[in-house]
Amino acid sequence: MTTARDLAIVALDVATDKPVEQGDLSLALAGAEVFDLLEARALVLDGDRILPSAQSPTGDRLLDEAAAALVRQEPYESVEDWLWRRGRGLSSAYVEDLERIGLITRPRGRRIPLRTGRTELVDSAARRQAEERWAADEPVLAALAAAAGMRDEPAAEPADETVTVLAAVGDAVMELEAVRQRKVIEDAAFDNVWRGY
């Protein structure tokens, strides 16, 4: 299993207790893919730039898609740009993939979004592995989950190379929240204008 898939599984487990914003989770999943691709040696980080390495199959469909999506021309892509580009709709892609491989079930005939908690995780080795990493407070998984709003900040400080990615994920999530807040304020102002007439 990958960190990204473990994060998606944990999000489905936690989503019933604490709603997870799909946009925040998508950004965290894109960050998790960076870690998974680093581990698979499909990329290296040069400061905040993602430099692709030799592309070899990882055995995970979504991770192979991520590897194929890496920008392969200089000046390459920053981690932040990757998060925004790759993260678009990524939480839904992971839910669909988990369903496709039989790790979750849904009521038949309806498409139900992640945050309703109506998806059910199947008892599986993948679920147990994700739960073990979660219970062990594995630093990268815990930090990504915190960035997505699923838990408080972890006590353990991640290693050097991970700080760049985690900082970019945190910044992107804060930027997304600022966009949400602006939208709420703009909508409220628009409503007030119409009430005045």
Rank of each mutant, 00 (worst) to 15 (best):
T105R: 09
R110M: 08
L70A: 10
R100M: 00
R118E: 14
L63T: 13
R108V: 08
D81T: 13
E96H: 10
P75W: 07
R115E: 11
R106A: 10
E120C: 14
T105A: 10
D97Y: 08
L83W: 05
A69Y: 08
V71M: 14
L90A: 06
R72W: 07
R110V: 12
A69I: 12
A67C: 11
Y94T: 03
L70P: 11
P57S: 08
S92M: 12
G89R: 08
G109W: 01
G109Q: 05
L62Y: 03
S92P: 09
G59H: 01
R61I: 02
L121M: 02
E99R: 09
L62V: 01
D64G: 00
T116V: 11
I112C: 12
R111C: 07
V79N: 07
S92D: 14
D60T: 03
A66Y: 04
L121A: 05
P113M: 05
P107W: 06
E99S: 09
T58L: 01
D60L: 02
A66Q: 12
D60C: 01
L62W: 02
E77V: 11
P75E: 10
T119V: 13
E77F: 02
R85N: 07
G87T: 06
E120H: 13
E74P: 14
L114S: 07
I112Y: 10
E99F: 01
G109I: 01
W84H: 15
L83N: 09
V79I: 09
R118H: 15
L70H: 13
G109C: 07
A66T: 13
W84I: 10
G59I: 01
G87R: 04
P113N: 10
T119A: 14
E99L: 06
L103W: 01
G102Q: 00
R100C: 01
R85H: 08
T58Q: 09
T58D: 04
T116N: 14
R100N: 06
L98P: 01
V71W: 11
S78I: 00
P57C: 00
L62A: 03
W82Q: 07
E99N: 06
V79S: 09
P75K: 12
I101G: 02
Y94E: 05
E65W: 04
G87Q: 05
L121Y: 00
E96A: 06
E77T: 13
S78F: 01
T58G: 03
W82C: 08
Q73K: 15
A67S: 12
